[in-house]
Each structure stands twice: as structure tokens, then as C-alpha cells.
């Protein structure tokens, strides 16, 4: 797996799309600092962009990479390598290169603007950590969808649908449910529901560490009471880990049985 990961990284780190992705974060973060020198404000603005854009780009890139490298994958499959190594290596290379672009694109401006000396290091690392985890989750789901669907249009459609579900539709449905059932105590339901959406869970985890958490009202207090504790953080981390491992297991299972 290590060798496939190495060569996938080698290829992708030189791809124009990835350089563009890195350049976007770099310019965007510098732009935010130029508009407002306040680290906290930049962090909040960045959070809103990262939590939507990272899953979207990871999804698109994941599907595109699989379909574009299909013929090369066939060449690899004819080499004396187990299928598991080929697909997990490609996935790790894909997600790893995108995560690296995010880390450098956002990290470099923060370091230059004096993050190390500020009290916001923890929050910043949490934002980057969430971005990296979301990259792995959504590129994994996209890779799995592409692996299952030989029809590219269907694969792209399904992958975008999954992103739409987690980034937009899930919140809408949740809000509707909360509004319709407002006469009932829904705090635990809201807490439970947030665990099933990695984007929501990441957003809550970051917001709890920022001053804006006060805006979340009573539900925010419930979140803070649970996720603010050691056990809560552990549960959140475990759930996010499951979100990474789920697509990984699915990729492995499909790859073993698929015809190429």
C-alpha cells in the first residue's frame, strides 16, 4: 500500500487541480487577513467556507480521480499486488494530497499573521483537524461511489447528491423536525442527530471552542455540557473516526469483488 500511496502522492501533488485548490486557500486566507486583522473573525469566516467547500471538493476530486485513473488502475491490477493495497493506497494518496493542500493553504497565512503567539492555536488546529477529517470522509465516500458505478454520469450525480444531503438537506430536514416538534424536549435528539452528519458535528465542535457558541442558545448549552466534557469529546472523535472507517471498509469490500 505504501508504494501506491507514494506514487499517487507523487502524481497528485504535481497536478494543476490540486495546485489550484492550494492556491485558493492561500489567497482566500490571506484575503481574509487583509480585510480583517482579527484572528477570531478570520477563523469564523474560514470555518464557514471550509465546512462547505472541503466536502464538496473532496467529493468532486474523489470521483474524478477514480474515473481518470481507471485504465491505469487496470495496469496496476495486472501487477503482483493485492487489490487491497492498490485501492487503499490510491485513496490514501488522494485524501492525503488534498489534506496537505488544505493544511498548507490555510496554515501558512495563519503562521505569518502571528498565530503561534495568540491564544487561538487550539481553535485553529481544531478547524484544520476537522478539515482534514472531512477530506478523508468525503473523498472516501466519493471513491466508494465511483467504484460501485461504472457509469461516470451516474457516479458524479450520486456523489453530488451525497454532498448535498450532508451539506444542505440534512440541516433543512433537522430544522423542520425541530420546528414541528418544538413542544417536546428535543435537546438530546438534536445532539444525537448531529452525530449522524460529520459536517454538523465538525461545525459544533469548532463553534463550541469559539466565543460565538453563546449564539447557539439553550441547545448550545446542552451541546457544551456533553461535547465539552472529556467523554463527549471522546464520543465525537470516535464518531468522526467511524465516519472515516466506514467508507474505507466499504472501498475494501467492493474492490475485492469488483470486475475490471
Amino acid at each position: 500500500m505504501g508504494k501506491i500511496l507514494k506514487y499517487t502522492l507523487y502524481d497528485l501533488l504535481r497536478s494543476r487541480s490540486l495546485l489550484f485548490y492550494f492556491g485558493f486557500y492561500l489567497l482566500f486566507t490571506f484575503g481574509l487577513f487583509w480585510l480583517s486583522g482579527d484572528l477570531q473573525k478570520v477563523l469564523v469566516s474560514l470555518m464557514n467556507v471550509v465546512l462547505v467547500l472541503v466536502p464538496l471538493i473532496a467529493t468532486m476530486f474523489g470521483v474524478m480521480y477514480y474515473y481518470n485513473s481507471r485504465e491505469f488502475t487496470e495496469l496496476l491490477l495486472a501487477l503482483p499486488l493485492p487489490r487491497r493495497d492498490i485501492f487503499l493506497g490510491q485513496y490514501a494518496g488522494l485524501a492525503g494530497s488534498m489534506a496537505l493542500a488544505l493544511l498548507l493553504g490555510v496554515g501558512v497565512p495563519f503562521l505569518l499573521y502571528g498565530l503561534a503567539a495568540s491564544a487561538l492555536v487550539g481553535q485553529f488546529l481544531l478547524l484544520l483537524g476537522a478539515g482534514v477529517v472531512l477530506t478523508f470522509i468525503f473523498s472516501g465516500m466519493a471513491f466508494f461511489i465511483a467504484l460501485r458505478n461504472d457509469n461516470r454520469i451516474r457516479g458524479f450525480g450520486l456523489a453530488i447528491l451525497v454532498w448535498l444531503l450532508f451539506a444542505v438537506a440534512y440541516d433543512g430536514a433537522l430544522l423542520l423536525a425541530l420546528a414541528l416538534l418544538r413542544d417536546y424536549p428535543l435537546e438530546k435528539f438534536a445532539l444525537g442527530a448531529s452525530l449522524f452528519n460529520p459536517i454538523d458535528l465538525s461545525r459544533i465542535l469548532i463553534m463550541l471552542k469559539l466565543d460565538v457558541a453563546a449564539l447557539m442558545g439553550f441547545t448550545g448549552a446542552v451541546f457544551r455540557k456533553f461535547l465539552g466534557t472529556g467523554l463527549g469529546s471522546l464520543v465525537a472523535a470516535a464518531v468522526l473516526l467511524l465516519w472515516v472507517l466506514g467508507p474505507l471498509g466499504a472501498i475494501r469490500m467492493v474492490a475485492e469483488k469488483k470486475d475490471f
Binding site: 507523487y10 497536478s15 485504465e71 487496470e74
Partner: peptide, 9 residues
């Protein structure tokens, strides 16, 4: 293989 496509970069 029938189609020769390799990692572009």
C-alpha cells in the same frame, strides 16, 4: 492493456 493511460503528472 488495451488502453494506455497513465498518471498524467
Amino acid at each position: 492493456p488495451q488502453i494506455a493511460r497513465f498518471p498524467e503528472n
